[in-house]
Design a protein around this nucleic acid. Structure first.
Length: 991
RNA sequence: GGCCGAGUGGCGGAAUUGGCAGACGCACGGGACUUAAAAUCCCGGGUUCCGAUUGGAGCGUACGGGUUCGAGUCCCGUCUCGGCUACCA
């Protein structure tokens, strides 16, 4: 906090008994917040309801917060103020505005707090929500609080569970072509599981076989997936709770990867739709790109390498038989046991595939390990299983792996290639096995060099190719020649009849040729994986599922759904959840009456004890706001049609990938199943930039107190000696600028560091919105956050900047209020007189500036224009009401409390929230004359005044008559004249 | 390493998208008011050189090139900072 304090709150003089006429933010803000609440000013009428605005609907949404125990952060009000301005502006423009707020309230912190203190997460959550609500109300946001929701409300998660059942009931048919309610034709659709065609041979096997066949195709399915099991803590950890070193965040205990039965959502089925339908939404290209990269579509081919049925030596002979069979039967959808299927984006390098690699978790590893190699392979796989993904990537600078002892046959060259196991191949991508082409893949090259495997070049680089940095780094010397890998495209080499063919053509030809031989097929792969949808936690939505048990009380793998009319499935009451020392979820220890049930047919049932991840509730909350109290459906179809899609969605960039991808996925499933009418939920998306702490200037000192220039500091240590250095905070007057760097005043050789850091408790630079409001008021906080700079940009906080906007608001106050009077009175300068032409021009310039600023979300420039207005009017002794009133309306979306108070003072009795937005009169915008620059050879040499409507030749004539210009033109040859009406004149001359 | 974004006064930033660089705010300096201070109001400012008083000339948007009558804005290359991502075959 700054030392000097604004007068509004801390006036030393005795308080007058009457209303203080000074700008007193706290009094005004409390008053109007109360007024809005009493009058239900911002309650949004439902479509068709009496009193609903006739204008078009406008749905503006904030990403709802996780109500943490720390309360609101200054980052929150940034986006919330932006959307609030858009909404308030929208209302004044006659739009029917939906602007809700709620809580993403399931999550780990409340659960951990519960384990430590015994307080139920429900209570912690309620308390935190109350704090957040109070803080948001204190900032004067125009939410319709009647629509408030929390993901933890049973009435809400009722429908989260219901949507899960929809996912469970859906399979994806990639073939179906259909036209949706949006009139678009698409191929591929999520359909009811009852419509899944069952092959006759499955039907023949009976009901259980049919159920299992269906279960394997649902969008929600069960799968063994590794979890972070920490034996010491006796609990499973979320990825965020595991450090980069593979230790538990709390206590630094080792964490193992353990497979556990979990629920997955088949988001990959929608990968193509998620990719393609991104084109139609109004998001920045960089966020779209982020999503595209995350989905990571690649095109290539699946190729089968023959491995025979055993480890026999007759591989070469049986290979030709196998090939003949394949030529007749074609490429099977599911590979048989006699082949190893790989995915490659470079089928053109097939002739250079000199070995193969399996991921350690590949199911063929055991089978392919020969007796001599079995022990080494088993040891390697066991070691790999213990490593986290991070370890695997980190340690693997040195590419490790072991030979299985087995061979496969390269389908094009007919050569035997060794099969290895290595953890640089991921089990979860492609087929979990690769053909290695060391000459043309950096990772394969590195591995081959390390393990002495054959490298065959099959692509000739194009003329003039220079190896890239990474390629050079991997250079090796063979005899007296040096070789590098080449990963680019070129022409074929050592590739039989394909020699000389360009890469692109080769890819296509060989895929087709192998395809007709039944050896390969074109394939598409995604980086995107199916979504691991279960967590081993208490504080999350329970799954609406029962497991069938066999006579021994074991899960059969068959599942029954909870009937929709029995939803929601509540969390068990009076249950003391503590880590129980097993990887299974805490709910596994829930009371019997919650956990077990006997079905009408006598089958023993056990509840699913995993819970849903925090993402679940945030996947569809935007829908519920449109109909938050609906008891019979997750949303009324008419309301859905009316309000969707969200017109503007604002939130932090940290959700640019996952949250948006997940909710788009759910939305598309609901769309396919006919529950929503739009294919995409969010029409326009804006990410606000992070707010950093105040800028800090830091210098470094060594042990003896000598300054060390930042050039010699690497992550807090001396670059040469490695000595730990002490960072010292400096005041602005201790440093100065020297060229491009900032240096100590006392020694210009010592460069210092000057930058702003992310706000964090440990750095002590966290700004609490409560303090700012206490000190300057909500209007100042709102205004400052918008004035800092463009919404999307990262920007440092500055407390004196807050003071700047506070002073502006005070000036606006004194524009209209006589602050010397004993009571609230209009300033004598405010008069009912005709405004001057100049005043009108100023007003209308402000109207365009503010209107355009809001519409393009450049709030900072909109505020600048209002500052110019108030600066100008402050200087004038007569301030016509006719320009002040519209100005108050322009200011109102930004500083609503102050604006309401002034509006009231100007004699209005109603809130200004629904006053019509001031209308622009273009005619009043311009003067009769404009001053334009006159250039000679592109340099400004003078200025002339010309009529606004002057044509190019007319304004040129004016310029030529100007004394100083005429002087400069005299004796020179005018080569060319550029005369842009109303802009400038440029004479190109030669002496 | 890859991808994305950004570099403009002491600081946050503006510039109608190729047309007067530095709007507006902060910080700073000067003045008015005041016994004094705070608050408020008014004025000032990119920089170098010459004139030296009112003026004039040059250089300036990270750096080096280019296109153009004209570039902060477009093109090529380089550097720095920030964010995301990390063996995806």
């Amino acid at each position: 906090m700054p030392a000097c304090r604004p007068s509004g709150f801390h006036d030393k003089r005795p308080e007058p008994v009457s209303i203080m006429p000074r700008y007193d933010a706290r009094r005004i803000e409390n008053k109007w917040q109360q007024h809005w609440e009493d009058q239900q000013t911002f309650r949004t009428p439902d479509p068709g309801e009496a009193g609903a605005p006739a204008g078009e609907k406008l749905y503006v949404l904030d990403m709802f917060p996780y109500p943490s125990g720390n309360g609101l952060h200054v980052g929150h009000p940034e986006g919330y103020t932006a959307t609030d301005i858009v909404c308030r502006y929208g209302r004044m423009k006659g739009r029917h505005v939906l602007h809700p707020m709620g809580w993403d309230a399931f999550g780990l912190p409340a659960e951990q707090h519960a384990i430590q203190t015994g307080t139920h997460p429900r209570e912690t959550t309620k308390k935190n929500i109350d704090t957040f609500r109070r803080q948001l109300k204190m900032l004067g946001f125009s939410y319709d609080w009647d629509r408030e929701l929390s993901t933890t409300d049973p009435e809400y998660f009722h429908w989260t569970q219901w949507i899960f059942l929809q996912l469970y009931d859906t399979w994806y048919d990639p073939q179906q072509t259909w036209t949706g309610p949006d009139g678009e034709e698409r191929t591929g659709r999520g359909r009811p599981i009852s419509e899944l065609p069952i092959p006759p041979e499955v039907t023949a096997e009976g009901e259980q076989a049919v159920r299992r066949y269906q279960d394997a195709r649902r969008l929600a399915y069960q799968h063994e997936a590794p979890v972070n099991w920490c034996p010491k803590l006796g609990t499973v950890l979320a990825n965020e709770e595991v450090t980069a070193e593979g230790l538990s965040d709390r206590g630094n205990h080792p964490v193992e990867r353990r497979p556990l039965r979990q629920w997955m959502l088949r988001i990959t089925a929608y990968a193509d739709r998620l990719l393609q339908e991104l084109d139609g939404v109004d998001w920045t290209e960089s966020i779209k790109l982020l999503q595209r990269n995350w989905i990571g579509r690649s095109e290539g081919a699946e190729v089968d390498f023959y491995i025979g049925m055993g480890n026999g030596g007759d591989l070469d002979r049986s290979f030709s038989q196998w090939k003949a069979v394949r030529a007749g039967a074609g490429f099977p959808a599911v590979p048989g046991d006699d082949v190893l299927r790989v995915y490659t984006t470079r089928p053109d390098t097939l002739y250079g595939a000199t070995y193969m690699v399996l991921a350690p978790e590949h199911s063929y590893v055991d089978r392919l390990a020969t007796d001599e190699q079995r022990e080494a392979v088993a040891a390697y796989c066991a070691q790999a299983a213990r490593k986290s993904d991070l370890d695997r990537t980190d340690l693997a600078r040195e590419k490790s792996g072991v030979f299985t002892g087995s061979y496969a046959i390269n389908p094009v060259s007919g050569q035997r290639v060794p099969i290895w196991v290595a953890d640089y191949v991921l089990g979860s991508y492609g087929t979990g096995a690769i053909m290695a082409v060391p000459a043309h893949d950096l990772r394969d090259w590195e591995f081959a060099v390390t393990h002495g495997l054959t490298i065959t070049r099959v692509v000739q680089p194009p003329e003039g190719w220079k190896p890239s940095r990474e390629e050079v780094e991997l250079q090796r010397t063979v005899g007296d020649r040096s070789e590098t890998p080449f990963v680019g495209e070129g022409t074929a080499l050592n590739s039989g009849s394909f020699n000389g063919m360009p890469t692109a053509e080769f890819k296509e030809k060989i895929t087709r040729s192998l395809g007709s031989g039944g050896l390969a097929r074109a394939a598409v792969n995604y980086r995107l994986r199916d979504w691991l949808f279960s967590r081993q936690h208490f504080w999350g939505e329970p799954f609406p599922l029962w497991h069938e048990l066999d006579d021994d009380g074991q899960l059969t793998g068959l599942v029954r759904t909870v009937a929709p009319e029995e939803l929601p499935v509540h969390l068990p009451e009076n249950f003391d959840f503590k880590p129980h020392g097993r990887p299974e979820p805490p709910l596994d220890e829930a009371p019997e009456e919650w956990l077990y049930h006997t079905a009408e047919d006598g089958t023993r049932l056990k509840r699913e004890t995993n819970s849903m991840p925090q993402w679940a509730g945030s996947c569809w909350y935007y829908l519920r706001y449109a109909d938050p109290k609906n008891q019979t459906a997750f949303i009324d179809p008419e309301r859905e049609k009316y309000w969707m899609p969200v017109d503007l969605y604002v939130g932090g960039a940290e959700h640019a990938v996952l949250h948006l991808l997940y909710s788009r996925f759910w939305h598309k499933v609901l769309f396919d199943r006919g529950h929503v009418s739009t294919a995409e939920p969010f029409r326009k998306l804006v990410n606000q930039g992070m707010i950093l702490g105040e800028a800090e200037t830091t210098a470094f000192q060594d042990e003896t107190g000598n300054w060390v220039s930042v050039d010699d500091v690497v992550s807090g240590k001396h670059r040469e000696t490695g000595e730990e250095l002490t960072p010292v905070r400096l005041e602005a007057d201790q440093v100065e600028k020297d060229g491009d760097s900032i240096v100590l005043k006392e020694s210009s050789r010592i460069r210092v560091e000057s930058r702003a850091y992310k706000m964090s408790k440990s750095r002590g630079n966290v700004i609490n919105p409560d303090d700012v409001v206490q000190e300057y008021g909500a209007d100042s906080l709102r205004l400052y956050e918008m004035f800092m700079g463009p919404l999307e940009q990262v920007k440092p906080w500055s407390m004196s900047g807050v003071e700047g906007v506070y002073r502006f608001l005070g000036r606006v106050w004194r524009l209209m209020v006589d602050d010397r009077a004993e009571e609230m009175t209009l300033s004598a300068a405010v008069q009912d007189v005709e405004p001057t032409e100049e005043q009108l021009r100023l007003l209308h310039r402000t109207i365009t500036g503010v209107t355009d600023g809001i519409e393009s979300m450049s709030f900072n420039t909109a505020i600048s224009r209002m500052m110019e207005f108030s600066n100008e009017l402050t200087r004038q002794d007569v301030r016509p009401r006719a320009v002040l009133e519209p100005f108050v309306l322009l200011l109102s979306p930004f500083a609503p409390h102050l604006a309401e108070e002034l509006w009231h003072l100007l004699g209005h009795t109603e809130s200004l929230a629904y006053e019509p937005w001031p209308e622009l009169n273009e005619a009043l915008l311009h003067e009769a004359d404009v001053e334009i620059p006159v250039q000679i050879n592109g340099k400004v040499k003078g200025r002339v005044r010309v009529p606004v409507e002057a044509t190019a030749p007319e304004q040129q004539a004016v310029a030529e008559q100007d004394e100083s210009i005429a002087g400069l033109l005299a004796g020179a040859t005018v080569v060319k004249v550029i005369s842009v009406p109303g802009r400038l004149i440029n004479f190109v001359i030669r002496k």
